[in-house]
Amino acid sequence: MDRLREKVRNLLKDGKVAGYLGYIMKDGHPLPHLFTPARPEEVGQAIVAPGDARYPLDKLLQQLAKGYPDATFAVQVRGCDERGLNELYKWGQLDPEKVVLVGVACPQDQADYCECPGPWPSVIDSGNKCKPVLRSQRVDRIDALAGEAAFQEWMSAFNKCVKCYGCRDICPMCFCKECALEHPDLMSTGKVPPDSIFQLVRALHMAGRCIDCGLCEENCPADIPLRVLYKKGNALVKEMFDYDTGSLTTGLSPWKFLGDESTMETKPM
């Protein structure tokens, strides 16, 4: 913690950043907070949010960036947040020149809970690297189910949906001004639970974009295992297009370019 606070203090003092988006304890709740050079004394209270009280700082950062397009901000990132930033750069929503990372490595229990293959960012200012989880057992279990059984499980889950849009609202990767999930032509209105197309379209959009932060699932009042669906989407994108969501070195998302040639084969009937 001290290392992190020291870094933040220096960043604010050097005038390199307009502010640091991190967490502060407020009335017993860890909440996102923008630390500014105007109030350096607050840095002493900067904390690393515990795993069960994470917020989509990437999302808040996008709003900050819109309000202050010329300012540089520092932001607290875990492995997933940094993946989010990398993708947001590629999708044109944030400028990498205007973001400074303050990195937090996740503890083992967090990594295990998230089944995270990359539980630390490229810059670590707090915490130590733990063992990543390379395979998602939650996904593997569904993969192993027969079609009918899988269908039953998913339909039971989807049927609990109350169309609160919590998943979309909290997702740092959802930045569309107009959301397809609200288009009356695509989604029949006035139905709860909504048609499963609601969940499937979200899963579609999350493929190659989801950074596996888990906030959607944690936010869902109906405990729908959203993360499993989106993890699978990403796994498919990796398998088919060799695209590592969230990596800066993996190039452009397969959904954003045609390519010089197409070598895929259609599946047999």
């Binding site: 999708w91 044109g92 929503q93 569309c176 959904w255």
Partner: peptide, 26 residues
């Protein structure tokens, strides 16, 4: 333009390069 979020998912998939991106307005 009211709904476009500047993600450029369209720009790269036009086979004719017919979609441009206005940097200032994103």
């Amino acid at each position: 333009p009211a709904a476009c979020s500047g993600c450029q998912a369209c720009v790269g998939v036009c086979p004719f390069g017919a979609i441009g991106f206005k940097e200032d307005e994103k």
